[in-house]
Amino acid sequence: MRTLWWKIMALALVLAASITALRTPLAPAIVYASGGPFAPGGNSASVIGYRTHFMAAPVRVFLENGGQFVEASSTVVADDTHLTARFEVPVGLREDMSDLVVVAPGHGAMRLFAAFYNPEKGTGAVDGVTDAPQQGERAGFVFPNRNILYETIRNLNFHVPMWFTMMLLQTISFVFSIKVLGSGRWLDDRAAVQAVNASLLFAILGLITGSIWARATWSGWWTSDAKLNGAAVTVLIYLAYLVLRGSVTDLAKRARLAAIYNIFAYVLMLLFIMALPRMTASLHPGSGGNPAFSQYDLDDSLRPVFYAAVLGWMGIGTWIFNLQYRLARIENRHDEERLR
């Protein structure tokens, strides 16, 4: 464990992933549209984009309602991020809510979901609808852009690796706890508790960063959510583990009791985390009916960066555990010598 290469690897991965995560531009997107409700007839809407270049290219603006497209009759571009569009809304659109779709060369098709309310529902419009617009290519390596996430999508590469690292360290602790029961060596017990300590550092970081992110996107520091409940239970379990250790003075007994509790708790925690998403709703992507990040990320630009960040942070976590463990070992040897 004192070899250097994997530490350098971990640092390089975290560095590369962090720089990419902070430097990669966001895809242009429509973030806001005012106007409506759109009753049949003439209606205008003002549209705000983020990182868009409306001035540079011809922009086409559409409404989509139940698969039917309505193109704007006139579009006035104010600047790169602001435009107003006027629609002749036909009679008989199918759905309550219409999406706004803006197509521009180099931007791809930018969509704002459920942008306008359509008060008079029908069975489908006959006149005034057009074909689906060509999607168009999106230029360059960009991150996906969602109207509540904006730049915070970059947090994916900082917040989520904390949880992966925590899980890895807890798995390490679990393995050492099994070894404690087999061998009864105090060294394995030291390793188990230091892995738990390190995992709690990452759990706390994950909780705080998640809380900040949640406040900025879901406007609550804490929401009732499957992933959050899982995280809370995990932290409680390992705090209880430390309390248990604190309340036993006999070293051999402490090692065994702590190992038994750790094994029991770890397995139940895994089951809990696997079963939770089916039991509670979640705001997180990929669970509770929400699309996973990869699903609305068309060109998978997030994926390699994310995996690099996860691997790198796992390495850093292991390194932290390794340092704590080695120090604990020295402390313990010292104590033993003094007792002799």
Binding site: Y150, E151, F158, L201, L205, T209
Partner: peptide, 24 residues
């Protein structure tokens, strides 16, 4: 947290992680 495309949220998150590692 909300200003300029919520980039400050990202800055806060990164700072929290660095601070946490620093405190450790």
């Amino acid at each position: 947290l909300y200003g300029s495309g919520k980039i400050n949220t990202v800055i806060t998150v990164v700072s929290v992680i660095l601070l946490g590692i620093g405190l450790w």
